[in-house]
Design a protein around this nucleic acid. Structure first.
Length: 1042
RNA sequence: GGGCGAUUGGCUCAGUGGUAGAGCACUCCGUUCACAUCGGAGGGGUCACUGGUUCGAAUCCAGUAUCGCCCA
């Protein structure tokens, strides 16, 4: 067999991966020892629309390293794969595809037909990322591939194996029944393009060039006050009478919905006017709204004018202020982000708002929301168009704050201009839609996180769950201790439809039984249908897993209604409008038939779906078959390690903690390993617009998956920044070639002649064989310790240093004379040792570099098992032979000293030199004798002769316990040699000086640990010894000069 | 503004109190039969700054500066 010179990754990777898969190597429990403990990792489900990027590659490499390592150790392992259904992203992808192929749009298709299209797309394209993960070498149990929408109504046969959908619905119903989920009107991130609420995670805050306008809000009734501005020392810098309060805003269009102006309670400038009313300087003059000036801790007195307008329905900070102060929140925009066109004309709306501001009426949330305060001329405008109109109107009226014009005096330039600051502002954008996100007050479903956060906090506080790096725990506490309600509803079609049905509230105030006869007549029915109680927002609702289960709950409601309503059949209709029609028709029919059994009580299901994170929050139990008590659930839950990006600590990790604890009262995993974003070599985020995106598949094509994987491991320092450098990847590709050729060398030297090496630790007699066996023991301990502590970089560098720095640089070289030895026993021993050492390298490297190691494993003999299932070693420091260790290190230092001297004396590399020795202690003599052949070979020495004193022109080589010399009188450059020795002397003196200083300090000797003092003494002695020899050499050189 | 973190050779980074390290890059030498995707030798660092704790600080503490990330 003649091995190729390099590993052909492109050819081998798919072949090896297929072999693993075909043999079922990744199946849950594969290679488990009898009675083994379990080890389970849940993949962070990639988006079903996703394609593999560097973040996935890195994240999954770490998981694969762990799972392969544990699998080789004989644990009962499961790496659970799958994808999430990615509501908004998937809907967008499918809609785009419909548009591209000239098919009817989503709305034209309708919900059911559109969802069919989504499922079609999923069957065709949803497996992309799964296949890409295979190219990385990910050893997931693919037969178990999960999907957060599996088992949903409308899912094709192929998706019916899972029941994730039922699990999600069951959790919603259970949590609803426990009072952990409620419906409410709250401020959410609204995407005007997709017309849905989105999560914080889907919002990107980007700094953009913005403007800060300054406007005057006149005091009501022309009141005035003395405005006094002081500097830090309390000196008055400005004092004037004002009839207004100055407000700065970046969003003038939201002024229309202002409910108050707030100032800080400590702000003396505005103290005289707190509690008074001021006028919003926009809208028809005759209907100007007045709003109160209130105090709140939120305004920063040092920022802008110190006064803040409060628009509770369109700003998150203002929302909090408005809630605290009972300020009404007026919604100004529709779902598309345009100014509202609905409701009563402005004059009417403004009048109601006025009454509220004066405290004459108090508005419920629903009532406030029904009021449209957009002036008639601005209705229907896009929000940005409305902004510029508002600015123009205010400025035209002279209510903009004016400043001196720096251009004044120039042609056509006025003396004063409106005060508009150009400044960068952080603006929220939808990460999918790229439009500006609008904080919007809407009806949504929420998880009452306050009620379930406790156990999730406790589990980390008491150490049941460990988060790495530790700083992640701080962040976790910080977020959970200040947790906000979690909005879980989305106005999308693709997702788990909320299992709540609504019905019209027929028992409201509108119904009055005129005759008091307990029965409904026509007049009463008419009143019922038009009454206030049928306004949107006041419906009855019930929650249940399906329609059949919800019917009885509506029946219970009916029981309290008068005849004949209490007999009505509960029937599901599409929506609220259809329900009203159906009810009216049914009542009309009843009038003629008088048959109560024909009466229909229509109910409709909530059209919204659940946030994708609500379902992925159940990933650990959902993928294992919950709520069924499956074997997998019993075995692998709670799972072991979660490896994920620190950016989703809140959105996913914390939610999994809360939900698993809330639903099954168990932690989902015991360790969370968090890592950062993979960046480019300079530390920049990878982005399409910067053009610095690296595609992991391109990297795999060019350098092989192993190189990419090794790079991932090497940069995975706990808490470290991940900078991906192609040079580094190339270096690790080279590392693979290095191992390949080391094995090739072994193969060429008959190591595998007798078949695969024995798994038994070889019995060695030769020093270097004993030494490399000990080094192998040390590296196994180092690798396991590193992986146990999730220090992947330490594991990688320990293996790199061992394989390249010890095995290839030294052991292979040392072995050459032994493999060519005439002594058959020495040769056999060395072959056995080398075979074993190479096998250990392959075994320990396999979790990080599975492909090349598996290939070499197969190349070097028939094996009982593939490497993926080989036994992970457990030997350790007991393999270290101290004497062999010392001796080999001495040999290495001697060889290095000779090479160094040769190189610096410009001795031609190929030239063999004689060497002299003037003194050598007993250990040195023994070491020389036992290792002469390899020293001579590696240092290119032809002979060694003992002398009493070195001749003139002899280059000195000093090692522990010995002085060697190279007679180079004819080639020596005296000045150069003197420089070399002086430099060495200087370094030694510096070291010795430091050691002496410490040892002369009585405090050091008294306080430092014994072994530290002892070590310092030994070091000093060794330095002084060497200083002596270098000085001798320098003296000899001086003689030569003379 | 709040929180978290970083600052070590030209670059990218390890290094949790005891003689400053690695890889890459650089310089010189090398077609020695495992490997030029290689080998050998070498240069290069006041560990951001200022104080403090300690016998001893890159390492612990405080402050300063600069940078990054998250949140507002």
């Amino acid at each position: 067999m003649a091995m190729e010179k390099t590993f052909n990754a492109a050819e081998a990777e798919s072949r090896l991966y297929d072999a693993w898969e075909k043999a079922g190597c990744f199946t849950a429990g594969a290679n488990a020892k009898p009675g083994a403990s379990t080890y389970c990792i849940m993949i962070p489900p990639p988006n079903v629309t996703g394609v593999l990027h560097m973040g996935h590659a890195f994240n999954n490499t770490l998981q694969d390293i762990l799972i392969r390592w544990k699998r080789m150790q004989g644990f009962d392992t499961l790496w659970q794969p799958g994808t999430d259904h990615a509501g908004i992203a998937t809907q967008m992808v499918v809609e785009r595809k419909l548009a591209e192929t000239q098919q009817p749009s989503r709305r034209e298709l309708g919900r059911e037909a559109f969802l069919e299209k989504v499922w079609e797309w999923k069957e065709q394209s949803g497996g992309t990322i799964v296949n890409q993960l295979k190219r990385l070498g990910a050893s997931c149990d693919w037969d178990r591939t999960a999907f957060t929408m599996s088992g949903a109504p409308g899912a094709p046969e192929a998706e019916r194996h899972g029941n994730f959908h039922d699990a999600v619905i069951k959790v919603f119903v259970d949590m609803y029944n426990k009072g952990l989920i409620y419906r409410g009107k709250r401020l959410v991130n609204w995407d005007p393009h997709f017309e849905t609420a989105i999560s914080d995670l889907e919002v990107e805050n980007i700094e953009v060039a913005g403007h800060m306008w300054h406007f005057k809000y006149p005091l009501a009734g022309g009141e005035t006050y003395t405005f006094v501005e002081k500097d830090e020392d309390g000196n008055v810098v400005l004092e004037e009478e004002r009839d207004y309060i100055s407000i700065a805003t970046t969003r003038p269009e939201t002024m229309l919905g202002d409910g108050a102006v707030a100032v800080h309670p400590s702000d003396e400038r505005y103290a005289p006017i707190v509690g008074k009313l001021c006028e919003i300087p926009v809208g028809p003059k005759e209907h100007r709204r007045l709003i109160p000036i209130i105090t709140d801790e939120y305004p920063d007195p040092d920022f802008g004018s110190g006064a803040v307008k409060i628009t509770g329905a369109h700003d998150f900070n203002d929302y909090q202020v408005a809630k605290r102060g009972g300020i009404p929140m007026y919604r100004l925009m529709d779902t598309k982000g345009a100014m509202r066109e609905d409701g009563a004309p402005y004059a009417e709306a403004a009048a109601i708002a006025m009454q509220a501001a004066k405290g004459e009426v108090s508005l419920s949330e629903t009532e406030a929301d029904a009021i449209n305060l957009v002036p008639d001329d601005l209705r229907g405008l896009d929000r940005f168009e409305a902004r510029s109109r508002v600015v123009d109107q205010i400025t035209a009226e002279g209510l903009a704050v004016m400043v001196a014009n720096p251009e004044a005096g120039a042609e056509g330039e006025p003396e004063f201009i409106p005060y508009v600051e150009k400044k960068p502002i952080m603006q929220p954008f939808g990460d999918r839609s790229k439009v500006v996100i609008e904080p919007m007050l809407t009806d949504q479903w929420f998880v009452d996180t306050d009620k379930i956060v406790g156990p999730a906090l406790d589990a980390v506080r008491d150490g049941t769950v460990k988060i790495l790096p530790e700083s992640g725990e701080k962040t976790y506490y910080h977020w959970l201790e200040n947790i906000e309600p979690w909005c879980i509803s989305r106005q999308l079609w693709w997702g788990h439809q909320i299992p709540v049905w609504y019905g019209l509230n027929l028992s409201g105030e509108g119904y009055v039984d005129d005759e008091n006869d307990g029965a409904l007549d026509l007049v009463e029915m008419g009143r019922l249908l038009s009454s206030q109680s049928l306004l949107p927002g006041d419906e009855l609702h019930h929650c249940a897993a399906d329609f059949d289960s919800v019917v009885s709950k509506f029946k219970d409601d009916e029981a309290g209604l008068p005849v004949p309503l209490n007999h009505a059949r509960v029937v599901e209709v599409a929506d609220r409008a259809e329900a009203l029609e159906t009810l009216a028709a049914s009542l009309a029919q009843y009038e003629t038939t008088q048959d109560p059994t024909q009466l229909i009580y229509p109910v409709w299901r909530d059209p919204d779906v659940l946030d994708t994170w609500f379902s992925s929050g159940l990933w650990p139990i959902g993928t294992l078959g919950w709520p069924q008590e499956t074997e997998a659930l019993a075995k692998y839950f709670p799972t072991s390690t979660l490896v994920t990006g620190q950016d989703i600590l809140f959105f996913w990790v914390a939610r999994m903690m809360m939900m698993q604890l809330a639903v099954v009262d168990q932690i989902p995993f015991d360790t969370v390993y968090l890592h950062g974003l993979v960046r480019d070599a300079k530390g920049k985020k990878m982005s399409k617009s910067t053009g610095n995106v690296m595609d992991p598949l391109d990297i795999i094509d060019e350098y092989g998956a192993d190189a990419l994987r090794f790079s991932s491991a090497a940069m995975a320092a706990l808490g470290g920044v991940l900078k991906l450098d192609m040079e580094r990847i190339k270096g690790y590709r080279n590392f693979g070639t290095k191992i390949w050729n080391a094995v090739r060398f072994a193969e060429m030297n008959g190591v595998y002649e007798g078949g695969a090496p024995s798994a038994a630790i070889p019995e060695a007699t030769a020093t270097v064989n004993k030494w490399i066996i000990g080094e192998t023991g040390k590296v196994r301990v180092a690798v396991d310790e590193a992986l146990e502590g999730f220090r992947f970089n330490d594991a990688a560098s320990a293996l790199y240093a061992f394989v390249w720095g010890k095995v290839c640089d030294w052991y292979v070289e040392f072995s050459k004379p032994l493999l060519n030895s005439d002594d058959a026993a020495v040769q056999a021993e060395t072959r056995a040792t080398m075979g074993w050492v190479m096998d250990q390298c392959l075994t320990m490297l396999h979790p990080i570099m599975p492909f090349i190691t598996e290939e070499l494993w197969g190349e070097t003999g028939a094996r009982a098992k593939m490497l993926v299932h080989a036994d992970w070693p457990s030997y350790g420091a007991e393999l270290v032979d101290e004497a062999a260790d010392r001796e080999t290190n001495w040999v290495i230092s001697l060889i290095e000293a000779i090479r160094s001297a040769r190189s610096q004396m410009h001795v031609p590399a190929g030239l063999k030199l004689p060497m002299l020795v003037s003194e050598l202690d007993e250990a040195g003599r023994a070491a020389w004798d036992r290792n002469e052949a390899l020293i001579l070979k590696l240092a290119r020495i032809e002979s060694l002769a003992e002398v009493d004193a070195f001749p003139k022109g002899c280059v000195s080589i000093t090692v522990e316990g010995g002085s060697f010399g190279l007679p180079l009188a004819d080639v020596i450059d005296v000045a150069e040699e003197k420089g070399r020795l002086e430099k060495a002397l200087g370094k030694l003196e510096k070291e010795a000086g430091g050691l002496r200083g410490r040892l002369n300090n009585p405090n050091f000797v008294a306080s430092a640990p014994e072994e530290v003092v002892e070590e310092a003494r030994e070091n000093l002695a060794a330095r002084e010894d060497e200083i002596g020899r270098v000085k001798t050499a320098l003296a000899r050189l001086a003689e030569m000069e003379a």
